[in-house]
């Protein structure tokens, strides 16, 4: 077994631990616990990053060197990493224990699925010719940062709907968080789609071929464009915007998983 797989399995347990640490905070309401949670989050993120780097190095040892962004296992791990990254970068606005708790839970979900599901191949696989391109890095990075931002927007929407009074961040902060994460996610998704198109032009000879993955990313893009217009041109707020961010994330998840498992096309690396 690869060293990186072991590190990443430990990281998975750390996310579980972080989830419980949040619960301890909610039970005790001690600020000290929260300080500890943030330190633990930094450590987890550091180790998560190390796991990715070690995997990268290991791929060179197997003389098929490539960034760990090429198969389903690696994309799940990277998704978890992006969520942590967003939480840390947006720390100022995300300083709500309920939010960080659910962010850790989502990261745990992806990491756990990647590390412990038998259907996910954890081996480092060589790159097929179509993936041998520098566009791979920028394309995957922008897409997953977008996916992670939309996950944060989803959480903000979810909390607005459920409105758990005692633990919930104030409504206006949630709304601000919601559109701010879409403000990061939307340009990133655009960049992801466009870098994908440029890459497709060089690899397949056509920048757009209505492949299911492309089409679904466009559907998600249109959806968030609608979100932005509803929010800024129509002044939608509260429940309606919250609902939009939840449906939007469903579209993200379908773009990521659904297309790989249900629809087939040029982008079928994930399911393979």
């Amino acid at each position: 077994m690869l060293v990186s797989n072991k590190i990443l399995a430990v990281v998975t347990f750390l996310y579980l631990f972080l989830f419980f640490a949040h619960l301890v905070y909610f039970a005790t309401k001690q600020e000290r616990v929260l300080t500890f949670v943030w330190v633990a989050l930094y450590v987890t993120f550091g180790l998560h990053t190390a796991g990715l780097v070690v995997r990268w190095v290991e791929s060179y040892r197997l003389s098929i060197g490539h960034a760990p962004l090429s198969n389903f296992y690696e994309s799940l791990i990277f998704y978890g990493w992006c969520i942590s990254l967003i939480v840390i970068v947006m720390k100022k606005r995300l300083r709500f224990p309920l939010l960080t708790m659910f962010a850790c839970l989502i990261a745990l979900g992806f990491m756990g699925y990647a590390s412990f599901s038998s259907s996910v191949d954890k081996k480092i696989q060589p790159l097929i010719p179509a993936l041998q391109s520098n566009w791979l890095h920028i394309h995957v990075f922008t897409c997953f940062i977008a996916y992670a931002s939309f996950a944060v927007s989803f959480l903000a929407g979810l909390f607005s709907i459920f409105n758990w009074k005692s633990v919930m961040p104030p409504e206006e902060r949630l709304e601000e968080l919601n559109y701010r994460s879409v403000m990061v996610g939307f340009p990133m998704l655009s960049a992801g789609i466009l870098t994908g198109a440029v890459w497709a032009h060089y690899a397949w000879g056509s920048y757009w071929s209505w492949d299911p993955k492309e089409t679904w990313s466009l559907i998600t893009w249109i959806f968030y464009a609608l979100f932005l217009h509803a929010r800024f041109a129509r002044g939608w707020k509260g429940r309606r915007i919250a609902l939009l961010s939840i449906i939007g994330f469903a579209s993200v998840i379908f773009t990521y998983f659904g297309v790989n498992f249900i629809l087939s096309g040029l982008h079928s690396y994930g399911a393979a």
Binding site: W210, T215, I219, I222, L226, L263
Partner: peptide, 14 residues
């Protein structure tokens, strides 16, 4: 129109 194009695209993948 955006909603229509999105729904039509969904059919185009299903």
């Amino acid at each position: 129109l955006l909603a229509f194009i999105a729904v039509a695209s969904i059919f185009g993948t299903l």
